[in-house]
């Protein structure tokens, strides 16, 4: 009797979310797979089936490959750079100051830096994009102004206008934007390391570098992996920053999958083609996730 009642309650609670999820998340997915097989241009309710035509075109589309390449490059560089710098800063803020009055601390002024590093994360992504677009402005921008101020009048790169630089300029903004959050994340990890461990290491004569690589990193490995997941997501997206700062340009050198998909759907009116792109990105993401799941099994360190 009690069991049926329980079941009723559970079903009652679950039904609404499941229904909402089906209508607003699952069914559009299924539809996307269908639309990918059509030449739908987004206006009429009549849809013409064209089989796998969109996919054939997609695999021969150099811009799409460029976009995928950029996404993969981001997927490698963004986590490495952000985690690397984030870890370094977190370590400096929390454990690099050496023991003072018997306690492990960060460098002088650590509290101040912690707040400063977090600033960019508080800003909305749209503001960040516009802000950096102005900083990168080759003629009136802060960056080239600074170069001029130190006597480098001849070195005035056209940051977002140069095919060789634009991608890295965008990457720098993504790193700048994210770093504060990861410093906080790693700080939490470092704080959770028992002080006795660090003190023992220092007493045994370990240098800062040794403490960092032998003690800190292994003990906050969980946080680092979490960070890698989040950054991986950010790298496969990167839509907002690209849309605001470069529009995929110059000459598609900063194109990413999500933005190219958006362009095809909403600028070129090719919803069928864009859906096909969505399906391919879906498969790519799925494959990458499955791969990482397998590749990163590792036992946990207890302390």
């Amino acid at each position: 009797m009690r069991k049926t009642h329980q079941r009723r309650v559970i079903i009652g609670f679950l039904a609404a979310p499941v229904l909402l999820y089906t209508v607003f998340v699952a069914s559009p997915y299924v539809q996307a797979f269908y639309i990918a097989l059509t030449d739908w241009r987004g206006l009429s309710a009549e849809i013409g089936l064209i089989g796998l035509g969109n996919f054939t075109e997609l695999f021969g589309d150099p811009v799409f490959w460029q976009a995928l390449r950029n996404n993969l490059l981001l997927l490698v560089t963004l986590p490495i750079v952000t985690i690397g710098v984030g870890l370094f800063l977190a370590f400096m803020l929390n454990a690099a100051g050496g023991p003072r009055s018997g306690e492990i601390r960060g460098v002088r002024g650590a509290k101040f830096y912690r707040v400063v590093y977090f600033f960019p994360y508080v800003l909305s992504i749209a503001i960040i994009g516009v802000l950096w677009k102005n900083i990168y402005n080759p003629i009136n921008g802060l960056l080239n102004g600074a170069l001029r101020a130190v006597g480098l009048e001849e070195v005035q790169p056209s940051w977002l206008g140069d095919e060789r630089l634009a991608f890295w300029a965008v990457l720098a903004v993504l790193v700048w934007n994210g770093i504060g959050f990861y410093v906080v994340l790693f700080t939490a990890g470092i704080k959770a390391i028992p002080a006795s461990l660090l003190e023992a290491a220092v007493l045994d004569g370990a240098s800062r570098t040794q403490v960092f690589f032998r003690i800190t990193i292994p003990l906050i490995w969980e946080n680092i992996r979490t960070a890698a997941v989040y950054l991986g997501i950010a790298a496969l997206d990167a839509f907002a920053v690209v849309q605001i700062m470069t529009g995929g340009g110059p000459n598609d050198s900063t194109q990413v999958g999500s933005f190219y998909l958006y362009q095809n759907a909403f600028s070129y009116g090719r919803f069928g083609y864009a859906s096909a792109m969505g399906v391919v990105l879906f498969v790519v993401t799925l494959a990458l996730s499955a791969f990482t799941l397998r590749a990163t099994r590792k036992e946990r360190i207890e302390f």
């Binding site: 539809q31 993401t285 799925l286």
Partner: peptide, 23 residues
């Protein structure tokens, strides 16, 4: 996490379709 990651990455595929059929 990975499931969440996958879902977070793929809404573009579905978002497009939201307005397509049904009318």
């Amino acid at each position: 996490r990975s499931v969440l990651a996958m879902l977070a990455l793929t809404p573009v595929a579905g978002a497009l379709a939201g307005c397509a059929t049904g009318g």
